[in-house]
Design a protein around this nucleic acid. Structure first.
Lengths: 407, 407
DNA sequence: AGTAACTAAATCAACTTGATTTTCTAAAGC
DNA sequence: GCTTTAGAAAATCAAGTTGATTTAGTTACT
């Protein structure tokens, strides 16, 4: 497995000790505040089932470390006034990178997800040799221009289209980035920048972004349906990011929704992303140069009521509905979040035509959340999600953190 | 949410402490032995990353509690001879119940999964009022006849067809059990028997069975595709059972594989279980009374080379292939396990015709496990899985155990 | 002699407990 | 209207508990 695309450590179920417990408890405190907003020590103690003394110690440490900051004392109630703590945005920074067919984008965000710097560069279906130095340059430029405290840099998160390492799928067709099969992106970028790198597909990154800062903040299980050049899903299940045994969970662009339908470069027929994706729209519009078309075009066509675009919309709705049906049935998420590179207006147009959704396990009157919502991050969802990756990885309470590293 | 079908506690991410850690570490020791077979203290220490002293203490406790038993000392190597420990089958017992359209089955198993007693009763699409006293009677008969140490009874696990609590799906159609919509099975059975009850759909139960004792013992992520009266999937992801936000994950019987295809009682057309399920086979064979047909019939027809049955087989393969494709794409599991009430010979006939499988993220040359395997438990997979549920819940290391119960 | 498994006692880190202090609101008394 | 007193909630202090780790052996084999 050496030189693999992404480092996938073989997980072993290992024991735990006080050290791991402390690390977990610190994450729990941060997560409680992230989800609920500013909280007093006493409130955190109630939420986390830890003793108030323990919370007091942890909050003190986190404040000293610059991760938490006190807010104005709350008066008006009985008893000693509570001092709420919120997350200090300047407690940490993260670099997010996004690479796709036509653009490389980089951002720096703080702990609150606010963008502190942004760089955009045009590319044209770049190979690793072309892209890696560019990505490294974007990173260092971002860090230099934003003049942040380097010791507070949590890492680099990078988003790019999947799937990873699948023969006959990673390198074939107009929705895939050619030449990246088995290229060790994370290792190479780490070598070039000297900073820890996390690589995920764009849908997974977007899901993390929505979970930290967007519409999925309070959700335990949701699916992010990412409509980009192709189409993929990011899976957040039971409070954990699910990436799959080979890091390719959610690559549903090539599920068959129309047996015997449109031929796909993967060799199958009727694949979902032949109907619902930027590429599908470009193809339907018979553009002269679909490889270099821009999503903005679709927004214009939508606004102008272009009949061919309307036809694509009408044809895309049922496959999309089917995709949502499959995801709801297979995963029973609280909600499906829609987003991607597809312009927000187009996504909203699609979402507006989805009803009536298919009958599924999501069809229950006891629902509290809508079955489908549109993501909050807009077309930058992928880079913002990428930047959220290191923050998520450093602050999210997860099973891994509670277990001793083995080996 | 009171009176809900299953108790679904609202999970809060809570803190941990030494007490939770100890509980987790004990589970880790048991799991290590379950997966790898008998292990010496030193070997467990290496596997779990815990100190040998900690393991020594835990093993001592578990032996005293009757959960572990020493094996013959291993000689022949250098150093002090190691004493391997294995799981004491008599360390605990579990009752498994299974209810479907035509049968109620109950078993008692020990910790090794061996069946110690078995009871079978005919039923005919039972309502809760009919079934609950019967299930309680089966339980008490099993406990009485097997004369096990009641203090070592871990609980009752029950498997039944899903989905649960979905209007227009739980109670409609020939593959659903009518009248169970919103009936609080677990609570009611607990009240009748005085024993803790865990209820899951049959696919989930089967998945747990295969994970504890079958072909999925060493797998971290797999999908159990359960072909019964209908069709469903049990999801074991990243070492955890994934049940979905409303307990209905894996209910893929009603995903659309043939748009505009055979009409289904759920209102959609072309649902998967109209093509791949016992009921689909019965329907294709034009049986006079499909509600009371037996899976055994299919086995006979297969053996005799019946042409109509062969036609069903041929027609079922592509939808099944598509279902596997969807599951592989969405979840990227290590393996898809096939099983259910469908006779083993028929499942093997289906499995044999699956190749070539669709191109998916599972198509990589770096695989160590086959893409599809047939489950080890045979047609009792559902009851055995049901019996495995309490054992799993008591001994599997999971995130929940490490967190303090909140509220 | 060398090596690996195991044991016992002491140590340590982090959470818990219960008492105490702080700081406020609400209500009563004058 | 002002003062006093009771009550409540938040936060802290200090001692106690728990369970993993460390250290220093001992045992039983090649």
């Amino acid at each position: 497995m050496a030189g693999n695309y992404l480092m996938i450590p073989k997980k072993a179920i290992s024991g735990t000790n006080l050290e791991q417990a402390k690390s977990h408890n610190r994450r729990v405190v941060i997560e409680a505040i992230r989800i609920n907003g500013a909280l007093s020590r006493a409130a955190i103690a109630r939420l986390t089932a830890l003793s108030s003394q323990t919370i007091s110690n942890i909050v003190e440490e986190l404040e000293a470390a610059g991760l938490l900051q006190p807010e104005a004392t709350l008066k008006g109630a009985r008893g000693q006034p509570a001092v709420p703590y919120s997350i200090n945005p300047d407690g940490g920074y993260s670099v997010g990178l996004q690479l796709d067919h036509q653009m490389a984008v980089g951002v720096v965000t703080d702990l609150s997800g606010t963008v502190r710097a942004r760089i955009e560069r045009d590319v044209d279906r770049p190979t690793p040799t072309q892209a890696m130095p560019l990505l490294a340059a974007i990173s260092s430029d971002l860090i230099a221009t934003s003049r942040l405290n380097r010791t507070r840099l949590l890492g680099i998160g990078m988003a790019m289209p999947g799937p990873f390492g699948v023969e006959g799928m990673t390198s074939v067709g107009p929705t895939a980035l050619p030449g990246w099969q088995d290229f060790p992106v994370a290792e190479e970028l780490e070598r070039l920048t000297g900073i820890a790198v996390i690589v995920e597909n764009d849908a997974t990154a977007a899901a993390v972004g929505e979970r930290l800062y967007g519409v999925a903040r309070k959700l335990d299980s949701f699916v992010y349906l990412f409509i980009g050049t192709g189409l993929g899903a990011g899976l957040f299940l039971d409070g954990h990011l699910y990436k799959g045994s080979r890091h390719n969970a959610g690559e549903i662009g090539h599920i068959i929704v129309r047996p015997g339908g449109l031929p796909c470069d993967c060799g199958k027929r009727g694949c979902l992303e032949r109907y619902v994706s930027l590429r599908a729209a470009y193809d339907r519009l018979d553009l002269p140069d679909p490889d270099h078309a821009s999503p903005d075009l679709l927004e214009e066509l939508l606004a102008s009521g272009d009949s061919r675009f309307e036809a694509w919309l009408a044809e895309a709705v049922e496959p999309l509905r089917q995709a949502i049906d499959v995801l709801e049935m297979a995963l029973d998420p609280e909600t499906v979040v829609l987003g991607g590179f597809m312009p927000l207006a187009v996504i909203e147009a699609l979402a507006g035509r989805l009803e009536p959704l298919h009958l599924s396990v999501s069809s229950t009157s006891a629902r509290t959340t809508p079955r489908v919502v549109v993501g909050a991050a807009g077309k930058d969802t992928s880079v913002l999600g990428a930047a959220a990756l290191p923050i998520f990885s450093e602050t999210n309470p997860q099973f891994d953190v509670l277990q001793k590293p083995v080996g």
